[in-house]
């Protein structure tokens, strides 16, 4: 067993873990934060995406011991309970960026880093940027719009209309 300390959404947690414990299991089962999902469990789908020292990573393919001393952000940290949604969450709500919602936490964490590195991405950059996340419901179009919405609001620009466009 190894003693580790991780900071999750600003709060320090210590745990004694087996080296083979995956980071996603530490988060979900030891820390009881179930916003981070397990989808494929093979680093393909991105549902388990979190930020590790600010970088988006797939927590199903990282050992909990590898996160020792590091800072983790999960979907629970995007806004405090009862506080207004952050721009990304609001973008997903306003643009219908989710149906079943299973992929959403991972996509929002990935998009958090994407917008950090590239505050005003093109549609193509957004699509490449979320290419490590699978969504089986939306067809991605509304996810792209949700990220564009957050990008605009982050930059103080009026987001595009969220009304459906009929042509």
């Amino acid at each position: 067993m190894k003693q580790i300390t991780v900071t999750v959404n600003g709060q320090a947690h210590s745990a004694e873990v087996e080296p083979r414990l995956l980071l996603v299991h530490l988060i979900r089962e030891n820390l009881n934060m179930t916003g981070t999902h397990i989808g494929c469990d093979t680093s393909s789908c991105g549902a388990c995406t979190i930020l590790l020292n600010g970088k988006s990573v797939k927590s199903c393919t990282i050992l909990a011991v590898q996160a020792n001393g590091k800072s983790i952000s999960t979907v629970e940290g995007l806004c405090a309970p009862g506080a207004p949604l952050n721009n990304l969450q609001e973008g997903f709500k306003e643009n219908h960026g989710l149906h079943c919602g299973f992929c959403t936490p991972g996509i929002m964490m990935r998009a958090t880093e994407l917008l950090e590195m590239n505050p005003n991405p093109t549609e193509d950059e957004i699509r490449w940027g979320i290419s490590g996340n699978l969504c089986r419901c939306t067809g991605y179009n509304n996810i792209v719009k949700a990220i564009q919405y957050a990008s605009a609001k982050n930059r103080g620009v009026e987001p595009a209309s969220t009304e459906p466009q009929f042509v």
């Binding site: 393919t61 940027g129 979320i130 290419s131 490590g132």
Partner: peptide, 12 residues
């Protein structure tokens, strides 16, 4: 690098 896996995997 753009063709290796995906952004999250490339971060690791």
């Amino acid at each position: 690098t753009k063709l290796i896996a995906d952004p999250q995997v490339r971060n690791m």
